[in-house]
Design a protein around this nucleic acid. Structure first.
Lengths: 220, 220
DNA sequence: CTAAAACCTGACCAACTGGACAGCTTTCAG
DNA sequence: CTGAAAGCTGTCCAGTTGGTCAGGTTTTAG
């Protein structure tokens, strides 16, 4: 249900037209799903937004569910590519700073993707359960191991690695998911955060998290 | 559109029956809205879940939007009552610890409420814009002032107070909104976090945030 | 006991939902 | 130049949506 998206068409090398339209549709679908969630999204609205007749979307993606899964896959794929891998051999201060900066850049540049993922999780992750079941636990243990190595080497405070990771995720993702509330609190017009806002946020997070983890903080 | 919910019925002291049924309906609606968002929620499903005919819900709440607004109001009201107010005169270590503990308890005991709020914000807060416009900026400035006072007294590191607050919100709310992902990462069966998990999370957050803010940390 | 107010609901409706499909046009390899 | 594959879409459909309403029953105040 999750991995194969192209089971209903020959695809393969595929045509240029196909790529173009799939791209347009996925972009429109991202916006719609981010605004209304899976159930609330309307194929008609996605079609209008993409500038294509509704039937065309069904031609490419077969069903609403398959389109949604394609959008989710597109997001997870992008995140996987962009996210910095933490290196146990490296200096935690450097590694964590790079990670936080990368996640903040993601929050800034792809807030919609983050929101779709967020809404999916909040709704109980009905379409990501297999994703979480598959090798997620093992993957996550690999992530925590890095922190355990750092702690064993005395490079950072002894903490529960899992919750340190959750803090990294939550504090950065917040700037994508809750941008609306943040811009209201900061009194930003038109609900648009500027680059300077993200930079201040990053600086604050770096200070608190690096220092809080007992990691050497860079001279500010 | 937001404040008055009872414009279509005499209400006032109202009957006992009314209270009971409104309560049942709001509970069912919370579950449905948390799972599907506003647009994705179905009045029929809410009715079934509440054990009442659909028309009965319209009798009490008039429309889907009014029901949703009632649910949101119910949530905001509860949060307002339960949330600890930070005191500029107090010790930041004590105050922040109390606040973090209070928010974590909220995340643990009312995750659904948190999720409805989260989905609403992620969707661009279409029905909370007035709430954010009304006196939100001023209220928020009052909150940041507390941190500025602490900083001026040298009780904590100089940081952007707004982003410190965002960190408090995000890191705690994450345990309600993303419980699904967290339980998957921790390998918890049936997606249920236990009290011990929340306690470990709270300890980790307290350590990092208090230390990271340059506030005296309690002996652990 | 009475009557008015509150409560309740089955049946109905127009609008919209995701999806199916026949038959059209365009593209492109051989 | 040709024919098959790919691309495209107007039209239809059954099911669901939020919402209405007439007419019923129960509750309750006087």
């Amino acid at each position: 249900m999750f991995i194969e998206l192209d089971s209903h068409t020959p695809n393969g090398s595929a045509g240029r037209i196909r790529k173009d339209n799939e791209c347009k549709i996925i972009a429109a679908a991202e916006a719609e799903f981010a605004r209304h969630g899976y159930k609330g999204a309307s194929m008609q609205s996605i079609a209008d937004h993409a500038g294509l007749p509704k039937a065309n979307i069904h031609y490419y993606f077969g069903s609403k569910l398959r389109l949604y899964v394609a959008v989710l896959a597109h997001i997870l794929d992008m995140w996987d590519k962009l996210l910095v891998k933490l290196d146990a051999a490296g200096d935690p201060a450097v590694e964590l700073e790079a990670y936080i900066r990368a996640k903040m850049r993601l929050a800034q540049e792809h807030p919609q993707a983050s929101r779709i993922f967020g809404i999916e999780i909040m709704s109980g992750a009905p379409y990501l359960q297999e994703y979480f079941r598959k090798g997620y636990l093992e993957w996550f243990k690999g992530r925590t191991a890095v922190f355990e190595a750092w702690m064993a080497q005395g490079k950072m405070d002894r903490l529960d690695p899992a919750h340190v990771i959750f803090l990294l995720w939550s504090s950065t993702q917040h700037y994508a998911d809750f941008a609306c509330q943040i811009s209201a609190a900061l009194g930003k017009p038109g609900q648009t955060l500027q680059a300077a806002d993200y930079e201040r946020a990053t600086q604050t997070l770096l200070h608190i998290i690096l220092k809080g983890c007992g990691v050497r903080q860079k001279p500010t």
